[in-house]
Design a protein around this nucleic acid. Structure first.
Lengths: 156, 156
DNA sequence: ACGGATTAATTCAAGCTTGAAGTTTCAGGA
DNA sequence: TCCTGAAACTTCAAGCTTGAATTAATCCGT
């Protein structure tokens, strides 16, 4: 996945494979750095951050299934992360709407306060880590990746 | 990490954050699709594929530490994956050089044969999944990501 | 109103991942 | 030689992740 040690791949169609490898290595490198900092500075993890980030934008709460769809992870996965966040007092499950299958999940007040602090640091870190990319280049790259995604999503 | 539901972030320095979110979503989407296909078609996983890909390029074998450095994962992680590949007969540990702390890890003949088949499918899939990206665009994107990495790696 | 299909969530086993701690081996200086 | 420190791995606990199976509740056609 990440690979390509010595003989650089060449031939027809290799450009896309090479792109994929770069993409993956870049995101893994950045991800590793962010994870490390989240751990060191805030004693938290990337998945918890992801969940809290999603909930932060949805003060009225989100369904578990919305959360898993949005984060691109499995349903059972979200259950576990939410369990831990609940036990830490950062997130609450509210089972008050009509449909008793669902539970609306939202940040607690404390969770919201804490997340705001972490998010500010996170944004600063990303700015640093991508410091080599000019703002203009960032916009162009974003555009390319956006068009990729919009062509892609909603298949199957 | 992946986030940004409704109010698109704006303000100074948000372009890089947005780029990071796109990058992460793109790689997660592609990764999920490849993982699914590896499971369905070949009953294997992405980490196993990564390891085998690295070993395929190094017929003489690799040290565990080289492997973990190259794949950007932890040492203990590689141990577990190799254990499973060994038990499946796809990889062998050869402890024959002078330093008895190290073990040279390489694909078995069967592992090599099987990997060649999987790799061909994998390359085809990546070509499809990135089909929207023109070859030219792929090269430009690769260039940007490469310069990012070369600026980045070997810090700290 | 009934009953079968759908949907939301949880549970579970297996595997992946990390960081820390532990083991074995090697290297180099007193 | 001996000893201290570094290096290469392994082990371990905790957490993340998936896909499949399960439970519970709702929907809808008849």
């Amino acid at each position: 996945m990440v690979a390509g040690p010595l003989p650089a791949p060449s031939g027809p169609g290799k450009d896309r494979l090479r792109l994929w490898i770069r993409l993956l290595r870049a995101s893994r490198t950045i991800e590793a750095e962010l994870r490390e900092r989240l751990r060191q500075e805030f004693n938290t993890t990337l998945p918890r951050f992801d969940v809290m980030a999603a909930l932060y934008r949805a003060p009225e709460g989100m369904l578990m299934s919305d959360l898993s769809r949005f984060l691109l992870v499995s349903n059972g996965n979200v259950t576990g992360i939410i369990d831990r966040l609940v036990s830490e007092g950062l997130v609450m499950r509210a089972r008050r709407n009509g449909d008793r299958r669902t539970s609306m999940v939202r940040l607690t007040e404390e969770g919201s306060k804490i997340f705001a602090v972490i998010a500010a640091a996170h944004e600063k870190w990303v700015g640093e880590l991508l410091g080599n990319v000019s703002e203009d280049e960032a916009r162009r790259l974003t555009g390319m990746l956006t068009s990729f995604r919009s062509n892609w999503e909603g298949r199957e």
